[in-house]
Design a protein around this nucleic acid. Structure first.
Length: 491
RNA sequence: GACCCUGUCGUCUAGUGGUUAGGACGCGAGGCUUUCAAUCUCGAAACGAGAGUUCGAUUCUCUUCAGGGUCACCA
């Protein structure tokens, strides 16, 4: 049997990092088992629909490289892949359940249900629908229909015994049926709830394995009983561990966009990872390491390499934080593997975003030298500020001195003169000349102190690309101007 | 509150009825260096607690504690 899995997001917001992880695990499983990965849109709650979210979800999945075999845009043999276009199907199967005694119409108003819950709370009774409509006589139903009440359809759950299902990650999980209430299957607007839609679609789309978030565990017995009622085969279930907020307080998916947690900026939408300078390969790698491990003490790998090793049974069931510092490390690793042209092109939009005018050719002169310093593509904005923003160059005179320099002013003058007069303005000759001056400028004969101070003088930054490349990128004229200003400050 | 899930270094994880409990990130120290960065070496750092089973438990069982999840005409 061919493995068929699906990612089934609701278009209620931009793609969440937790959702991306769920999609990724499904993708890994499908690709590792020669199966199909299906994208299905669960838009049965029209009230929560967010304009533009479907586009973002698909764009984000594509950015991550998670391609799907069937879906709303590419079609497929089991479409449509948007639930709101399948409503007739759900209504038919809801009717089937009613006809076969597995479901019933319920006429309770929301006010009535609210009151019921209130009383349950007050009396400390178990929460949940008390099944008052389950036992209505035909006459009573007719009476309500005549009164114009629009019913919902509820599942007639088993009243006694237990329901057990097997979770591929956690093993068998058993619930007492008296804990399970009669959930709504079809809403009064004629659209299904998740419970009905998901079971009907997974069956009709021949889904073999369901990987979904942990928070669905408690409704799994309902779904299992639905499969039983329909007489359909139950797909393998696997509930993925929740992704926690970094503080460990609550699940991350409760947050819908980036927020500050202590000193860390916590990114929650996939698009935020992109705008903050992360590479999709790094995000994929990062996510795959959470709740699963490649093995052999290997931390860095592509999802293509991971797929053949990916098994449901090896997923760690414990809830988890996202280790953001590891993402930075991975991202820097992937940046260092990029070729210079690709990196220059990747950096360009971020620089332009901050208002710098850049062209790839001039960027190529400095990019190779600063590559190892980049953790995120946005770091280029900081490192290259000295190049693109003259106004930001405001060195602190106190930092132009170094206690190993015998005569800072003299060293600056000689450096300035050298840069101004050197015949060949290249990295190699600038390096040679400044080394020589630096070695004479200290009592130890080491060039380091002068070069360190010059870096600060020329760039106005504590951290920058290497000095000689920075000088060449900046150009002779601007370098001399800045050194002139520094000399004035030192006098 | 009820039910369900989970519990190995700070974090992400590997692992076993007998291991010096492994790796990674981060952190600290040192080397190298254009004293930022990268890189190399070294280091600190964990089996939540209590019973039980066993010759022996981090590993199996129970209890407990802690964290999380769910209790909608939302997914």
């Amino acid at each position: 049997m061919t493995v068929r899995v699906r990612f089934a997001p609701s278009p209620t917001g931009f793609l969440h990092i937790g959702g991306a992880r769920t999609a990724l695990f499904n993708w890994l499983f499908a690709r590792g088992h020669g199966g199909q990965f299906i994208l299905r849109i669960e838009d049965t709650d029209q009230k929560r629909y967010v304009e533009g979210s479907l586009d973002d979800i698909m764009a984000s999945l594509r950015w991550l490289g998670l391609d799907w075999d069937e879906g709303p845009d590419v079609g497929g043999p089991f479409g449509p892949y948007v639930q709101s276009e399948r409503r007739e199907l759900y209504r038919q199967w809801a009717d089937w359940l009613i006809e076969n005694g597995h479901a019933y119409t319920c006429y309770c108003s929301s006010a009535e249900l609210k009151q019921m819950r209130k009383e349950q709370k007050e009396n400390k009774d178990r929460l949940g629908y008390d099944r008052r409509c389950r036992y209505l006589t035909a006459a009573q139903r007719a009476e309500r229909e005549a009164a114009g009440l629009t019913p919902v359809v509820r599942f007639a759950a088993p009243l006694e015994g237990t329901t057990t299902f097997h979770d591929a990650i956690r093993g068998d999980i058993t619930y007492a049926n008296e804990q399970i209430t009669d959930q709504v299957l079809l809403k009064s607007d004629g659209l299904p709830t998740y419970h009905l839609a998901n079971v009907v679609d997974d069956h009709l789309m021949q889904i073999t394995h369901i990987m979904r978030a942990d928070e669905w565990i408690n409704t799994a017995p309902l779904h299992v009983n639905l499969y039983k009622a329909f007489g359909w085969e139950q797909p393998v279930l696997a509930h993925l561990p929740v992704v926690l907020s970094p503080s460990g307080k609550g699940k991350l998916s409760k947050r819908d966009q980036a927020f500050q947690e202590g000193n860390d900026l916590v990114l929650v939408q996939v698009r935020e990872y992109k705008t903050n300078g992360y590479l999709p390969e790094a995000v994929d790698n990062f996510l795959t390491n959470v709740g699963w491990s490649f093995g052999d003490d290997v931390e860095k790998f592509t999802i293509r390499e991971a797929a053949p090793r990916f098994e449901l049974e090896s997923i760690n069931p414990a809830p988890t934080n996202l280790p953001y510092s590891k993402l930075d490390w991975l991202n820097s690793q992937y940046i260092q593997e990029m070729d210079d042209l690709a990196l220059a092109q990747a950096l360009k939009p971020y620089l332009e975003e901050t208002g710098y005018e850049v062209n790839v050719d001039s960027l190529l002169a400095i990019v190779p030298a600063m590559k190892v310093r980049l953790k995120r593509l946005t770091d280029g904005n900081e490192f290259l500020r000295f190049l693109f923003d003259d106004d930001s160059w405001q060195p602190d005179p106190a930092k132009l001195r170094h206690n190993r320099l015998v005569d800072p002013l003299d060293a600056f003058v000689r450096s300035r003169d050298f840069v101004r007069d050197v015949a060949s303005f290249t990295v190699a000759s600038v390096a040679e000349g400044l080394y020589a001056i630096g070695e004479q400028a200290t009592d130890t004969g080491k060039a380091g102190p002068l070069l360190g101070v010059l870096r600060y003088a020329v760039t106005g930054q504590q951290a920058s690309p290497p000095l000689f490349e920075s000088i060449v990128a900046l150009g002779r004229t601007r370098t001399v101007e800045r050194l002139d200003d520094c000399i004035a400050m030192l006098q």
